[in-house]
Amino acid sequence: MLKKKITKILVGTNNTGKLREIKDLLPKNLKIYSTADFNIKSPPENGKTFKENSLIKARYFSKKAKMICLSDDSGLEIDILDGAPGIHSARWGGKKGDFIKAMNKVFKELDKKNRNWKTEKIKARFICALTIYGPNQKTINSIGKIEGHISPYMKGKNGFGYDPIFIPKGKKITFGEMKVSQKYRIDHRFKAFKKIKKFL
């Protein structure tokens, strides 16, 4: 059992889009810190799964800041690309994390696999692994997924990362076209968060 309710937490990410989304999901009575408050750079992510990378980040940031940390590792899996970009989702954007470049790489790889992919529904999913780790704290993990398919074109300016090319199952528009409030109610991060929010 947890020793006591968590009252303050470090969000272990240097990705401003993720930080914003996680902050919006966290309870309002929680004191939230970011890695920028401690000037901590990100660790190497050498895990083989989203869960492993999430734990690597949570443990690293927690030890640096000496406080409980919530870390996220998430990405896009595309079936026809054997699950790529997967855990390398951020790396497809290069050192500067340029997601226009990353999305164009997705299109290029899909072209190589199937010249007519734009006329088909290319199955994909977003996955999010969340980990809570810290001093006197039982480590907590959760995974959230949302199925969907790849849009043939980038659409919408909302969200971040691969949002402009992902159309969730049952919807006609990309995450990039959705209102933030609409996306938050269904996305992978929300699903993962629902499983751990009772600890916060």
Rank of each mutant, 00 (worst) to 15 (best):
F107G: 04
E52K: 10
N116L: 15
K113E: 12
G93E: 04
D82M: 12
P135Q: 08
R115K: 15
N104H: 11
P85M: 07
I56V: 12
K118N: 07
T131Y: 03
F99I: 07
W117L: 02
I127P: 03
K48N: 12
G75S: 06
K105W: 10
M103E: 09
K105P: 10
A90Q: 14
F99D: 05
K118L: 07
N46F: 12
F107H: 07
A65T: 03
S89K: 06
T131F: 01
K123W: 00
D98V: 11
D98W: 10
S54Q: 08
A129T: 00
L110N: 06
K64L: 04
K95Y: 13
G75I: 08
D37R: 14
N136W: 09
S74K: 03
R125G: 09
E109H: 06
Y60Q: 05
K118G: 08
T35V: 15
N46D: 12
S89P: 07
F107P: 02
M103T: 09
M103D: 04
C69E: 01
L130F: 07
A102D: 04
D82H: 12
T119W: 08
R115L: 14
L55A: 12
S74T: 02
M103F: 10
F50H: 05
T131E: 02
I40M: 14
D111S: 15
K95T: 14
K64H: 00
F61N: 00
D73F: 01
C69L: 01
W92N: 04
I40S: 11
V106D: 03
I122P: 00
R115Y: 12
L130V: 06
D72G: 07
T119S: 14
D111V: 11
G94C: 10
